[in-house]
Design a protein around this nucleic acid. Structure first.
Lengths: 204, 204
DNA sequence: CGTCAAGTGGAGGGGGTTATCCACTTACGA
DNA sequence: TCGTAAGTGGATAACCCCCTCCACTTGACG
């Protein structure tokens, strides 16, 4: 398998790109359980071509979703630059959940890719989000007992909507997020203790 | 296949019961994707015995979960008898979500069994819950823009926790529910419109 | 051009699932 | 006790899936 797409033959590079595009599309609308053969067929290539470029299905999934993950990362960085801490936090949650509701494979890909993600990236995202949370708490707009692990909680819960048709999922997700943000904003009632939902634990 | 278990031979009746018990157990801890062969093995019978009693896997799932569904129904009836409308509603949501977090197959079974559930049962549950919601609104403890469809929203969201280990799922579910109840209680912020999450729509 | 490594498609191996078939066993009424 | 219908188990068919193999094709460079 060729490491550098730029050194591949022109037709191969084109095929690779088309496969990736089709994979993203199908994963988004049908979820990760779409067969490799279907991706190949839609891309107008044989399965061998697929496996030459992506040694395993997991590799294809990873590659197909790194774009989305980078987008999440960027969203957090952007939010940290927002002068209003609460708006920053809210925007992150809203954007990520929208992405998740729109893309049926997102949650599964996220969970699947988590273990072998470079811990550097993971930690960077995590630290960024934690900082965002702390800022929002300090500004008094976020309840003090909010935990960064609650982001994972939101992601998992929002992921539960993945099975329904996209348009419905988006509307449902927006309402769910609105409810949750309402609860995050100014808490008066006591909550059960935060759940340390590090995905290491989750995948036990 | 014998319709009346009471008319079956003694050993057959016993086997049937054991299969059902094992199925419930395995569905709860491993989800619905547990193979029929595994259920048969654990129950100490051959697969043929399974298929003699339950013509299809779906039938077995249905039968295995009617107990749980009845329990939900009962919870709603009970809540309607509670003098405190809010406590009734809260208890229903808490109990159902706990059930869902404890039993990994619950959500899938619920969604799968929904289409061919007797509409009588469906309607009865729905009407009961709607009444519960109306009572809570009238008492001023539930935000006016809460929709009965939001129960489905809660169920789907809470179902998103199904993949994690049971103990974690329970803790996470409790925190999620606490957050949501907080938001349901006294809403001041505006929400997006309710999503008509009738499962007919959801399964489209 | 011609050469040939890089690229390709489709058949099929290996493992998984649900469900069926049929020769054998067993409970139980007479 | 014994006959028989009900009950049973395991092999197996039919269908998915991921992935590999190999004979064939083609882009690109000298």
């Amino acid at each position: 398998m060729t490491a550098e797409p730029s050194q591949m033959r022109a037709d191969a590079r084109e095929n690779r790109a088309r496969v990736l595009a089709v994979a993203r599309e199908l994963f988004a609308e049908r979820g990760l359980e779409v067969p490799m053969a279907a991706i190949a067929r839609h891309a107008g290539v044989g399965v061998a071509t697929l496996y030459r470029r992506f040694p395993t299905k997991e590799a294809l999934v990873m590659e197909a979703f790194t774009e989305q993950f980078a987008l999440c990362q960027a969203t957090i960085e952007e939010a940290l630059a927002d002068p209003d801490p609460w708006r920053g936090l809210r925007t992150v949650i809203e954007k990520v959940c929208l992405l998740q509701a729109t893309d049926r494979g997102f949650t599964a890909a996220f969970v699947a890719s988590f273990p072998d993600m470079h811990s550097e990236v993971r930690d960077r995202t995590w630290l960024g989000f934690s900082a965002l949370v702390q800022r929002a708490k300090d500004s008094g707009q976020l309840r003090a007992d909010f935990s960064p692990h609650d982001l994972t909680l939101v992601l998992l819960a929002n992921g539960g909507l993945a099975g329904v048709p996209v348009d419905v999922a988006v509307a449902a997700s927006q309402r769910l997020v609105a409810y949750l943000l309402e609860a995050f904003r100014t808490g008066t009632n006591e909550l059960p203790p935060p759940v340390p939902l590090s995905l290491d634990l989750v995948l036990r």
